[in-house]
């Protein structure tokens, strides 16, 4: 687990491909949507999630058990990947997985803000990022938001958080801090990325991720009609929008949609855009965005088999699996029928 030495894509790829084969298939999803939470937990116990279900089974039950087991397994899988990778490969993977550091920081801040106890916050963490156990534990023990911000001083979130903390003190809402975390993550995503033939694809993928995030934010703002300046949420590095454009586009959803249609993502997303225009459903559109990203990363894995892309494609597939199972479990709990749940899933 280090950024030193030469990279070892052969080793990591062989292991990741084996793990990828163990992900749930269409067939298994079809079975899962017809199960209740207890049955899903048992089904998981008989597959990859055995350790986690057994470890958490005594403390939780039902949907909570499934959710925490999913999170824990996700964290374990991604930690493994970081563990195996060396050299440049490590750097490339860590770029994307720092997303979970951002998630953890936000979870801790929210927990502190709403005075949750330590256990409740800890359960919601996904320890998959780069932060080591010690830092996470110290964050959990922090008594106030100020203390937590101080602890993060040396991480990549440090500067942004310190700046946003003043805002937080003025306004008393968490939004500036959360924004700062997100932007720090996205700004680091492309920062100092060495681009050669193999990583060029990866950069395209990261850009797509940023573009989709911008598009999603803009659409949500346009929908909510809130008087917020979209450029505050704008993330640098994408190629679809500029900050100034986004402000005007966010006021006009139709223009925004046609902009996406005309862009280089238009072909991949045309089905999603049609859906958005016809059914006016933002959720469907977001699902389609995720499916498009997954499909894109999937093809990347075949173009450069010995690079970072097959690994990223596995990471995305695993994330989707976790989200799918969670959607199934929550859906069953809420009493949705199988067809409705299937609409919520992102399956290729």
């Amino acid at each position: 687990m280090s950024a030193a030495g030469s990279s070892n894509p052969e080793y990591v790829n062989a292991r990741v491909r084996a793990r990828r084969g163990a992900l749930y298939s269409d067939e298994e999803y079809r079975k899962l949507v017809r199960m209740g939470p207890a049955e899903i937990a048992r089904f998981m116990e008989e597959s990859e999630y055995e350790t986690e279900i057994n470890a958490l089974g005594a403390r939780y039950s039902g949907v909570d058990l499934i959710e925490y087991a999913l999170n824990r397994n996700l964290a374990k899988q991604f930690d493994d990947i970081l563990d195996w990778a060396d050299g440049r490969l490590y750097d490339l993977i860590a770029r994307y997985l720092r997303k979970f550091d951002a998630w953890n920081v936000k979870t801790v801040l929210r927990g502190l803000y709403s005075d949750l106890d330590r256990q409740a916050i800890e359960d919601d963490l996904i320890r998959a990022g780069e932060f080591d156990e010690r830092l996470v534990n110290r964050l959990l023990e922090a008594g106030s938001i100020e203390e937590a911000v101080d602890l993060l001083d040396r991480t990549m979130f440090g500067d942004a958080l310190a700046e946003a903390y003043e805002d937080y003190e003025d306004t008393g809402v968490l939004v500036p801090l959360e924004n700062a975390v997100d932007r720090a993550f996205y700004e680091n995503l492309l920062d100092g990325l060495v681009v050669d033939e193999a990583t060029q694809q990866y950069r395209e993928f990261l850009r797509a991720e940023i573009d989709f995030r911008n598009a999603r934010n803009a659409l949500r703002l346009a929908r909510s009609g809130a008087e917020i300046d979209p450029s505050e949420y704008y993330i640098e590095g994408g190629k679809l929008f500029r900050a100034a454009e986004l402000s005007t586009l966010a006021q006009n959803a139709d223009e925004l949609v046609s902009r996406i249609r005309e862009s280089s993502y238009g072909d991949d997303l045309s089905a999603a855009i049609d859906e958005l225009e016809r059914a006016d459903s933002l959720i469907r559109f977001e699902r389609a965005l995720e499916a498009a990203l997954l499909e894109y990363s999937d093809t990347l894995g075949y173009v450069f088999p010995l690079s970072v892309t097959p690994i990223i494609s596995y990471i995305l597939a695993k994330e989707r699996e976790v989200e799918n199972i969670r959607a199934i479990a929550r859906g069953r709990e809420a009493g949705l029928d199988a067809d409705e749940i299937e609409d919520e899933l992102v399956i290729l």
Partner: peptide
């Protein structure tokens, strides 16, 4: 070198 690394990875999984 490459094949061995991949083979060890595969054996570790299965």
């Amino acid at each position: 070198r490459g094949i061995g690394a991949a083979a060890v990875g595969a054996v570790a999984e299965d």
